[in-house]
Design a protein around this nucleic acid. Structure first.
Lengths: 217, 217
DNA sequence: GTCTATAATGGGATAGAC
DNA sequence: GTCTATCCCATTATAGAC
């Protein structure tokens, strides 16, 4: 019967698709780890494959080239980050609320996804040789929109007149550094790794600095 | 005559030593450039040699291994950076003066030595696999000393009671990002590269944020 | 101190059997 | 989809002539 054959075929296709998802997820999980530590050139697909529990050749069945794998990792990083930050800055909301939430969200990302942050940082610092165009298209417009919101508030006299662009750079730098430079921070603090307390301390200080900078209590 | 022979030998030795210095300087100049863009693994000594105008094998005569070259580059980075920052923070000076000078010096380093800053950043973000011990010995004590100065001021009631460690992290992050993330900043600003004006804007905002954070006018 | 030659390894990628 | 075998290239490093 046609239906029965179709049912079997469909379920096989589905099972295969599910398995593909699982294998890809395992590969990507290990790839983030390794790219975060070694960058693009410092990571070999053989090591990624080994950690993910398959052969190098088999990994190349799922991701045809090393660059394709790297791009997929960075896609995941940006998807997560942009989803968290989207529509946080809104000129109609209270400046103090938005700034507080913004700092909190960025620090949360640094705490929960330090590897993602580091992969992105290594790419940007190295000159964004592979992912530059995506950054241009997906990140820059968002940053510009945030800056425009700050400038709207300044024009309306709701916050003190500061350089909105550099204010955003400052927020970005301070929050991101808790993922990117965690290795150095733990040495200064004499800890194995950063703890929630450290992020709470960071949030208090960064929030206070940002609010003070724009003349809010 | 012995003196004449000695004179000739001495001058030959000196000339050779001078030549070695010149060649090493040329190698190191190109190495910083390339390590700043590609990190340790992303840079080949063949490329360094080519840019410096000698053969790969000849480069290996001056620097016996790639790691030795990399370490010398990082030594140079730290030497310059530590020389600039040494004894800036002094508990006996005026807090506002010190903080202003500190921010200015760090931004000056980001402007004048962005490549050095990036080589260091790539190393730290990647987990300081090669240079971790040097960072432990040469950088961490300096950062701790700076933090101690801030804490002295707080104890003496000269600045508001903030978390001194995270204040230093904030200053570090904000200033260093003008070297490390310059590629992204220029995209946001729509410029070819950061100009002195941008650094002036940065200095104003960062200084204002830091002084406001510690309750100074 | 600089060159040629070459070793030795690791890496990305492809072909083709099953 | 997975495996074996293999290609091909770049890379670090060494040996030894000049």
């Amino acid at each position: 019967m046609a239906t029965s054959v179709n049912a079997i075929r469909t379920s096989t296709v589905k099972r295969r698709a599910l398995n593909r998802d699982k294998v890809e997820a395992a590969i990507l999980r290990e790839a983030v780890r390794l790219f975060a530590a070694g960058g693009y050139e410092g990571t070999s697909i053989a090591t990624v494959a080994e950690r993910a529990g398959l052969s190098k050749q088999n990994l190349l069945y799922y991701f045809p080239t090393k660059e394709a794998l790297y791009r997929r990792v960075l896609d995941g990083v940006l998807d997560d980050w942009l989803a968290r930050m989207a529509s946080l800055a809104d000129a109609r909301k209270e400046p103090a609320d938005v700034l507080r939430a913004y700092v909190r969200a960025k620090l949360k990302f640094s705490r929960e996804q330090p590897l993602a942050s580091r992969v992105y940082a290594l790419e940007v610092i190295g000159g964004a040789k592979v992912y530059g165009e995506q950054i241009r298209q997906r990140v820059i417009p968002l940053l510009r929109a945030d800056i425009a919101v700050f400038e709207r508030w300044i024009a309306d006299g709701r916050i003190a007149p500061v350089n909105a662009t550099h204010l955003l750079f400052a927020v970005w730098a301070m929050t991101q550094s808790y993922a990117d430079f965690a290795a150095q921070m733990t040495l200064v603090l004499g800890r194995e790794q950063l703890a929630q307390d450290d992020f709470d301390d960071a949030e208090r200080l960064v929030t206070a600095m940002v609010l003070a900078a724009v003349g809010l209590p």
